[in-house]
Amino acid sequence: MPKDLYKKISEILDGRQLSISGITRELKNEGYDEHRLFLTGYLRALKDMDKLVEIEVPPSKIYRLMDDSDETSEDVYSLLCDHLKQLDSDYRVPVGIYIAFNLFERPVFRQELKLIGFSEKQIQNQMDDFANIVQESTDTNLKKYRSDITRINIPSGDRAYEIKSDDEYIIQMSNEILIELMKEFVDVKGLVPKTKQTKLSF
């Protein structure tokens, strides 16, 4: 293994994020012909050492450099992914869109839904099932929103979604998720009765 492999990977990922295939290709262009299996393990080791951030974009894994904000806060998409798993799978996409739409104050891009852990099939199926609640956005500012997002890469022309109408059940589930998220960052021990239910009941 070349001694300066980490340095070269850092240079390749400076200001962007790439899949394992993309990193392998860039390394070959620089004269580093590393076996894919070795590189996969090496990248995961760098992730475990908090040198890189690993992002799930099924079926791929995307890597980017760790920055200062990563040291103090967990990736919002990973947090949503973890908590949405508590819900009935039939409601995860619309609830995810509802939370992100209100949190980011803009339509939610398809790429962001993938980062939350949804597959193309899940997104399409639940968009069809909840067409009366969620719709594809026709916001004229979508191009500007894409350019304003600097933490992740949004593909040019990536579709976005927004809330079409409020649904009481979707709002209730979204509020439960947001409360659970808040509890991760706010210490409520000694304030919540020990007999109080703390799990989602959906």
Results as ranks from 00 to 15, higher is better:
47 K>F: 08
50 D>N: 10
52 L>K: 03
66 M>P: 00
66 M>G: 00
61 K>I: 01
43 L>C: 02
48 D>N: 13
62 I>R: 15
58 P>R: 05
30 E>A: 14
45 A>H: 14
35 H>N: 15
71 E>K: 15
74 E>R: 10
74 E>C: 02
55 I>Q: 10
76 V>S: 11
61 K>H: 08
44 R>C: 07
38 F>N: 15
30 E>G: 08
55 I>T: 10
55 I>F: 02
41 G>P: 02
33 D>E: 15
58 P>I: 08
62 I>M: 14
45 A>T: 13
40 T>C: 12
70 D>V: 06
32 Y>A: 04
62 I>A: 07
33 D>F: 07
36 R>F: 08
73 S>V: 01
78 S>Q: 14
57 V>Q: 12
50 D>T: 00
67 D>P: 00
74 E>P: 05
33 D>C: 04
51 K>C: 10
33 D>P: 01
77 Y>F: 14
66 M>R: 08
55 I>M: 12
39 L>K: 02
62 I>Q: 13
47 K>P: 00
40 T>W: 12
75 D>W: 03
64 R>S: 02
37 L>P: 06
70 D>Y: 06
74 E>A: 03
38 F>C: 10
39 L>I: 00
62 I>S: 09
66 M>D: 00
70 D>S: 07
56 E>V: 01
71 E>P: 05
46 L>I: 04
41 G>F: 07
54 E>G: 03
75 D>Q: 04
76 V>F: 10
31 G>W: 05
79 L>S: 10
52 L>N: 04
41 G>L: 06
63 Y>G: 03
44 R>P: 03
73 S>A: 05
40 T>Q: 15
39 L>E: 01
59 P>R: 04
58 P>E: 10
65 L>V: 01
49 M>C: 12
65 L>I: 01
46 L>W: 06
69 S>P: 01
32 Y>K: 07
69 S>F: 10
60 S>T: 07
39 L>R: 03
33 D>V: 04
68 D>I: 11
70 D>C: 11
63 Y>F: 15
70 D>K: 02
35 H>I: 06
65 L>Y: 02
79 L>Y: 07
44 R>T: 05
34 E>D: 01
32 Y>Q: 08
63 Y>M: 06
39 L>W: 02
40 T>F: 15
79 L>K: 14
61 K>S: 10
46 L>C: 13
40 T>E: 14
64 R>L: 05
61 K>E: 06
58 P>Q: 09
67 D>A: 01
44 R>Y: 14
74 E>F: 05
39 L>G: 01
77 Y>T: 00
39 L>D: 00
37 L>G: 10
43 L>Y: 03
31 G>P: 07
75 D>I: 01
32 Y>L: 03
41 G>W: 02
49 M>D: 15
47 K>Y: 12
73 S>Q: 11
64 R>G: 04
48 D>C: 09
49 M>G: 09
30 E>C: 09
72 T>W: 11
38 F>G: 13
35 H>L: 12
36 R>W: 09
33 D>L: 08
32 Y>D: 10
53 V>G: 05
63 Y>L: 03
51 K>D: 12
43 L>Q: 04
68 D>K: 10
43 L>W: 00
73 S>C: 02
77 Y>L: 05
32 Y>I: 01
65 L>P: 00
50 D>Y: 09
67 D>F: 05
62 I>E: 13
47 K>I: 06
43 L>D: 02
37 L>F: 14
75 D>N: 13
69 S>R: 13
42 Y>F: 13
32 Y>T: 04
60 S>R: 14
43 L>H: 05
59 P>F: 02
